[in-house]
Design a protein around this nucleic acid. Structure first.
Length: 505
RNA sequence: UGGUUCGUAACUCAAUUGGUUUCAGAGUAUCGGUCUUUUACACCGGGAGUUGUGAGUUCGAGUCUCACCGGGCCAACCA
C-alpha cells in the first residue's frame, strides 16, 4: 500500500495521535452494549412510549456532523439506518472541565468514525426523533475518508458514487454509502432462505459434495485446474455437482439438494462470473413433468414472498411468475422463429441452415450443438415470459433419459425468462449401458475438436450399475435468478465480491 | 481475445475549435472562525491537483498522436 497519504488522511492520523495522547483508546477492546437500533427507535418512539426510551444506547458510523457551536447534531448509521444524536456541551461535560467536548467532539471526530452514545430519546424542534446524548464513546477511528454522498429526504442521491470499479473493488465502502446495495444483498439471502425453506418443507435434504474433483463432470465447460501436493495429482474445481448428487440418490437419499458454488474458466461479463452459484436438486421416482410443476410453484412463491405479487418488473418488461408457465418443444420454438422445421434435418443440412441464417457454425459441431446454436441465436432472446423449452435432441444432452415416445429426443427442459436460461432439468438417465454409450459419444466429439465435450467418469458409471431409481433433477442459476427478481442489470450487482483483475498496490 | 470509449483534488463534475486571463475552476469533504439545527448545500475565510503513466508533435497540450496501466460498453466463449 502506498504511503502517500492525502491531506485528509494525514489530518486523521494526527487526530488519532492526539486522541491517544489524551488517554483515549481509539480502538477500545471492550464490548459496547447496544440497547436499540435506529429504525426500531424511530418506529416505536412517541409520547406514550417515551418511558421505555429513557435509557438508550446506540452505536454506529458517523455519516454527518452539524456543528452549531455548543451543540452538535451528529447522524450515525447503524445496521438499520440513520439516527440523529443531539450532543450538548453541558450534558457531555457537566462539570467545569469541558475538554472532552471541546477536543473530542469538536475536533477529533470525523465522518466514518464509529461511536457509541447513550441518553434518552426525544423529538427535536424540527420533528426528528433523536438521542439526547449524555455519554459518547469513540469505538473506532476511521483513517480514510469515505466518498461523500448527499441525500435529500426522499433518498435521492447527489454526487452519487457510481463508478463500477470503485463499487466492486471496495464493496465495503459501497455498502456504507449506498443503502440500496445493502438491501439487494439482504434480499438475495432472503431468496435463498425461501428456497431452502420450500425444499426442506417437502422433505428434501441439503448436502455438501466435493468442490475438488478428479474428473470435472456434470456440465460442458472449461475447468480451473489445481494440484494436490501430497497425492501429486491434478484436481479440478467443480464445474457442476450433478454427478455427486446422483451418486447420493443411488445411495438411497430420495431428494437431495445443494447450493453449489461452481467454477468455470471462461469469459466474464454482465451475466458471467468465474465462480457462481447453482442450486441443484434430484428427486427419486419423479420425471421432468413433475419437475416443471414444482419449479413453477417455487418461482411463483419466490416472487410473492419477495414482492407480494406474481408480477416482477425487470428492465422495461413486466414478468409474470404466475404458474403455470408456457411449454414449447425446442423444434417448435425454432420453427416458430425461423419458419423452418428442423426435426428431420441431419448434421449437414443443419450446418447449411446455420450458414444461410448467418449463424456461426462449423464442422466440429455435432447435430446437438448445431441445434443448440440455432436456438440460442434465433430464439432464446424472444422468450421474455417464463417458458419451458422441452424435448431436446439426444446429442446435446448426454446425461438425460431418452424420451418415452419421441425417438432421437430426450426428456429435458430449460426454463427461459427474460431471454436467458434460468434453469435446466431432466428426467435423469439411469440406464448404465446407455450412459456409457453417451459418454463414448462425447469422447468422439472431443476427438473431433469439441473442447467442451464431457469426460467419462468410470466411478459414476459404477454407481449407476448398482442401480439408480428413476429420478428427475434440476439446476437453477441462483445469481441470475436474483438478477431477475431484484431487477439488477449485472451479475456483479448480486455478488458481494465479483471477480476483478487483481489490483496493484 | 477483437472493436469502441473513458481516466482532471478525498468525492461528483467544469475548462468554449490546442491559446492572450492569471497559479487548471466549482460544489461537497477538509482546516480556522461564528451560532442550541440543516432537511442534498447556515454564514465568513483558508489550504488542497506533476490532469492515469511514459514518450512524441507544437511557439504552446487536460485538449492532438503512439505505447503502456486500469475501467466501462459491444462482440466472441459460456450459465
Amino acid at each position: 500500500m502506498s504511503t502517500n497519504y492525502s491531506e485528509q488522511e494525514l489530518i486523521r492520523r494526527q487526530k488519532m495521535e492526539a486522541i491517544k495522547a489524551s488517554g483515549i483508546n481509539p480502538y477500545p477492546a471492550a464490548a459496547f452494549p447496544i440497547s436499540h437500533h435506529s429504525a426500531d427507535i424511530k418506529a416505536a418512539f412517541n409520547d406514550d412510549t417515551k418511558e421505555a426510551f429513557a435509557a438508550v444506547s446506540v452505536a454506529g458510523r458517523i455519516m454527518s456532523i452539524n456543528d452549531k457551536g455548543k451543540v452538535f447534531f451528529i447522524k450515525i448509521q447503524d445496521d438499520k439506518g440513520l439516527f440523529q444524536l443531539y450532543v450538548k456541551r453541558d450534558d457531555i461535560c457537566p462539570g467545569e472541565d469541558k475538554t472532552l467536548f471541546d477536543e473530542l467532539v469538536k475536533h477529533w471526530l470525523d465522518l466514518g468514525d464509529f461511536i457509541g452514545a447513550s441518553g434518552y430519546v426525544f423529538i427535536t424542534k424540527t420533528g426528528e426523533t433523536s438521542l439526547h446524548t449524555q455519554r459518547i464513546t469513540l469505538l473506532s477511528k476511521s483513517l480514510k475518508p469515505l466518498p461523500v454522498v448527499k441525500r435529500d429526504e426522499a433518498g435521492n442521491a447527489f454526487d452519487e458514487v457510481t463508478d463500477p470499479e470503485f463499487r466492486y473493488r471496495q464493496r465495503y465502502a459501497d455498502l456504507v454509502i449506498n443503502p440500496d446495495v445493502k438491501k439487494v444483498f439482504a434480499q438475495r439471502t432472503q431468496i435463498i432462505n425461501s428456497i431452502r425453506t420450500f425444499l426442506n418443507q417437502q422433505g428434501a435434504l441439503e448436502v455438501e459434495t466435493p468442490v475438488l474433483q478428479a474428473i470435472p463432470g456434470g456440465a460442458a465447460a472449461r475447468p480451473f485446474i489445481t494440484h494436490h501436493n501430497a497425492l501429486d495429482v491434478p484436481f479440478y474445481l467443480r464445474i457442476a455437482n450433478e454427478l455427486y448428487l446422483k451418486r447420493l440418490v443411488v445411495g438411497g437419499f430420495d431428494w437431495v439438494y445443494e447450493f453449489s458454488r461452481n467454477f468455470r474458466n471462461e469469459g466474464m461479463d454482465r451475466t458471467h462470473n468465474p465462480e457462481f452459484t447453482i442450486l441443484e436438486w434430484y428427486t427419486a421416482y419423479k420425471d421432468y413433468f413433475w419437475m416443471m410443476e414444482i419449479t413453477e410453484q417455487l418461482f411463483e412463491r419466490l416472487a410473492v414472498e419477495l414482492h407480494g405479487h406474481t408480477d416482477v418488473q425487470v428492465d422495461h418488461e413486466k414478468i409474470s411468475f404466475k404458474a403455470p408457465f408456457k411449454r414449447i418443444t425446442i423444434y417448435d420454438a425454432i420453427q416458430e422463429h425461423t419458419g423452418i422445421d428442423i426435426s428431420l434435418m441431419d448434421e449437414a443440412a443443419l450446418l447449411e441452415l446455420c450458414n444461410q441464417l448467418h449463424i456461426e457454425a462449423n464442422n466440429t459441431m455435432g447435430r446437438g450443438k448445431l441445434i443448440d446454436q440455432l436456438f440460442g441465436e434465433a430464439c432464446e432472446k424472444k422468450y421474455i415470459q417464463p417458458t419451458f423449452i422441452i424435448d431436446y435432441p439426444e446429442e446435446m444432452s448426454p446425461l438425460t433419459k431418452k424420451h418415452r415416445s419421441k425417438p432421437g429426443l430426450v426428456e429435458r427442459f430449460e426454463l427461459m425468462i427474460n431471454g436467458k436460461e434460468i434453469a435446466n432439468a431432466y428426467s435423469e438417465l439411469n440406464d448404465p449401458i446407455d450412459q456409457r454409450n453417451r459418454f463414448e459419444a462425447q469422447m468422439k466429439l472431443m476427438e473431433r475438436g469439441d473442447d467442451e465435450a464431457m469426460f467419462i467418469d468410470h466411478d459414476f458409471l459404477r454407481a449407476l450399475e448398482y442401480g439408480m431409481p428413476p429420478t428427475s433433477g434440476i439446476g437453477i442459476g441462483i445469481d441470475r435468478l436474483c438478477m431477475l427478481l431484484l431487477n439488477q442489470p449485472s451479475i456483479q450487482d448480486v455478488l458481494l465480491f465479483p471477480q476483478m483483475r487483481p489490483e496493484k498496490f
